[in-house]
Design a protein around this nucleic acid. Structure first.
Lengths: 306, 306
DNA sequence: ACACTATATAAGCAAATCTAATAATCTTAC
DNA sequence: GTAAGATTATTAGATTTGCTTATATAGTGT
């Protein structure tokens, strides 16, 4: 221990004895004596007056004792700060998630986590995707949940779930008469899509291209919420993850129509910093995430993650 | 160096680089890396995030950096305090002396010392004998000047000078007709002596005993000043060191009469703590004291020091 | 001066810490 | 993406530090 010398000198001063201080510090009298002498040689100053028994400190020794006390006090403070920090950090799992992962589902997970690990807490932030990446990269959170996860130098991806994508339409749309949509049913319909720079847009484009379908993209947005609004208003249909529109379905504002095989899936992944050292609670939460059965029936991995 | 670890971490934080910090501290990159890892292992906490270049500190690392800075600042303060203390101590020679050593003589010595060592100063305190011993023993002064010096376990005596003792009488006393006093001249005279517990008293008693002389001790005091007063008032004669009554002789209040051989001498010695480590100035002053020619002609050492 | 206790010193050994060489990792530029 | 350049980690061996035991020296009290 690096503070042993300060402790030793403090104890020499307190007990007025090298040998008592030595045994307090678990070393031999000889070792303590040598350390004291080395210290005095370093400082080129006598700190302890050996001419008296019990020993007494010189003026310089009293100064040095002050130094030792201050340093030990400050170190003690640090240890306690560090302890608090670790207790706090180790008890809290911080997760950043995109909005569309689904509040209810995640809160179910968190609930189960609390049941298993009563001492820990989970803090979930809902952010826009790029903010999720940022939070993970800067280590402000332990885990991130994003769709179409992209790995990179500093980022590792763990696949989590694949969400079924369905056609979303207003209840008044003609397509709602069908119980299942085949790709060519969408040929030429008014379509509301995602912005072109979003992975989900590229995936849907690929789907259309594969089935040689041409939709008429009348509107596009950078977020799911706006798309749902536009669809509900009858501006067109869209393709969305089924579970992100549960509320609107219940309200009768949107109708989901399954897409005939080959199905479309939106992959949702867990991202974390490469080589991240997880503390107990974070590791436990991660394990829980991976252990829980995925709601979707099929497990087909999307070939194009980007 | 015991503060090397704090410096190293501070430098790692400052340069955001282990290797630069290593070369700043004059060690190899490998050593610095190992020290950082040992530190982290000790604390069981990651302090530096290696996943980024330049390196960044973790929260715990920032706490530790604060600790390092505080400790280094405090240590710096200590070094400067110590420096001041040493400069002060090493430049000042502290001397405690009994009153009767003679102010003028000592100040001549001090003057010579200043001439030779212009950077240094001498502080002389005049104290009662027991206070001189106390000051030397407690290390409040470097040197003490006392008469009839007594060595002891913690005290070393260096003989310094021997002062001639003469009979002191009022100008009106019959003995003043003599130019030299022989022991039996004092038989039966009214005598003013020192208190019985003083070494000088014992020495004079021994002198009387040796020469089978009986004086009539009418008064006794614990200090020289009072004795001189009483003698001047004609209450009796006394035996005193010649140089301690120079002023009264000049004023015509006292008359000194030499004592015929075997002469009486008062030894004055230098005392200091045993094994005392003298700093430059103190050693120089001590050398000067011993080098200076002693005023008295004879060097006979008193057999009985106590 | 003696016995008793405490500190200093000496010698040998064990452990820590360093250096040099090499492997692994990160960044940058193509 | 990959290769080059720079930085950090690891390994192995040499060096140094620091410890322990044994013994000498020193301080205290009787």
């Amino acid at each position: 221990m690096d503070f042993g010398n300060f402790r030793l000198f403090r104890d020499i001063a307190a007990t007025k004895s090298v040998s008592r201080a030595a045994s307090l510090n678990g070393i031999s009298q000889s070792a303590a004596s040598q350390r004291l002498q080395d210290l005095e040689r370093d400082l080129d100053t006598i700190l302890v007056d050996r001419g008296t028994r019990p020993l007494t400190l010189t003026d310089a020794g009293r100064f040095y004792l002050e130094l030792c006390r201050d340093i030990l006090r400050r170190h003690e403070q640090f240890r306690s700060e560090l302890g608090e920090l670790k207790a706090k950090v180790e008890g809290v799992v911080k997760v950043a998630s995109i909005y569309s992962v689904g509040l209810s589902e995640l809160s179910q997970l968190v609930h189960e986590f609390y049941r298993r690990y009563p001492g820990s807490t989970v803090e979930v932030e809902y952010l826009r995707p790029e903010k999720v990446y940022e939070a993970v990269l800067s280590d402000r959170v332990d885990l991130g949940l994003v769709s179409y996860p992209e790995s990179s130098r500093h980022l590792t991806v763990l696949p989590w779930r694949e969400e079924e994508m369905v056609v979303a339409a207003s209840p008044y749309h003609p397509l709602t008469r069908k119980t299942e949509i085949l790709p060519y049913d969408l040929d030429g319909v008014a379509f509301i899509g995602f912005d072109e720079d979003l992975p989900i847009r590229r995936e849907i484009d690929r789907f259309f291209r594969e089935h040689r379908v041409q939709v008429n993209t009348t509107l596009h947005f950078d977020n799911l919420q706006m798309i749902k609004e536009a669809v509900a208003l009858g501006s067109g249909v869209s393709i969305l993850p089924a579970r992100t529109m549960e509320a609107e379905i219940a309200q009768g504002r949107l109708v989901p129509i399954p897409i005939g095989a080959p199905n479309l899936f939106r992959p949702v992944g867990i991202i974390h910093r490469r080589k991240k050292r997880f503390h107990r609670a974070a590791q436990a939460f991660l394990d829980l995430l991976q252990e829980l059965p995925v709601a979707e029936p099929s497990k087909r991995l999307s070939a194009a993650n980007i």
